[in-house]
């Protein structure tokens, strides 16, 4: 693992430590080695449309982290009672319940932002990261570990989203979080914002390049 790991808590009780090795792995692994966006190719669906500005990307990353963590926790608590035939429906209902709470919260406290995110908050329900983690992790693991796994995967998604959002906002409109970064002197000298960055094709190409960089460093290649 290339990510720096916090030193183990010295007097960890032998029985189910709160932050034992599997717990740390659950959080740190998805941040780099097993990144849901770059490595497992999950959750691209809603990630690109919200990254034209950094603040939208941050709220979206936060939302996905919360939804993944909470629904992981809930499903993991119920995992022994869900009949396997209807598990997808049960998972969808739990996830949409959590998403409804998050959506109502945005409506109440960040109305402008929730208008701009429009349908994409609702689309967290079908975000493959959430469903993928429920299927692959929460159905087999105890609640606390699943909760941490949800946090880890959500953050692994959020930091890539933040990078894409920063680059697109900086190159596309010369601002970060709404503050002008590119000096006006540069515009006077003939600098022009790259309009392609705020459009769809720019997002696709940018994500392709980020995947390329991430994989060059981590040394992973398909086939």
């Amino acid at each position: 693992m290339t990510t720096p790991v916090a030193p183990p808590r010295a007097p960890a009780p032998p029985k189910a430590p709160l932050f034992g090795k599997p717990e740390r792995k659950a959080v740190l692994d998805p941040l780099w080695d097993n990144n849901p966006l770059a490595f497992q190719v999950l959750g691209i669906c809603s990630s690109l449309a919200v990254t034209t500005r950094l603040d939208k990307a941050l709220v979206m990353g936060l939302g996905v982290t919360l939804v993944t963590a909470l629904s992981n926790l809930l499903i993991s608590c119920m995992r022994n009672y869900i009949p396997s035939k209807i598990r997808i429906i049960v998972q969808l209902v739990v996830v949409s319940g959590v998403v409804i709470v998050f959506d109502q919260f945005l409506h109440a406290y960040m109305y402008d932002l929730s208008k701009q995110l429009s349908v994409f908050v609702g689309l967290i329900i079908t975000n493959c990261i959430v469903m993928g983690r429920l299927e692959a992790y929460a159905m087999q693991n105890p609640p606390w570990r699943s909760f941490l796994d949800g946090i880890g995967n959500g953050l692994g998604y959020a930091w890539i989203l933040a990078i894409v959002g920063t680059v697109r906002e900086l190159l596309g409109s010369g601002k970060i979080l709404g503050y002008q970064i590119v000096p006006t002197a540069l515009y006077d000298a003939g600098y022009v914002n790259n309009g392609l960055m705020v459009l769809a094709p720019g997002a696709f190409c940018l994500l392709g390049i980020i995947v390329w960089i991430q994989r060059s460093i981590s040394g992973y290649a398909e086939k």
Binding site: F204, G208, E222, K223
Partner: peptide
Amino acid sequence: PLRGLGITFITTGLVA
């Protein structure tokens, strides 16, 4: 490292 996912994204960008 560009094979697979990376090149698919860039191609999709061109199609878009």
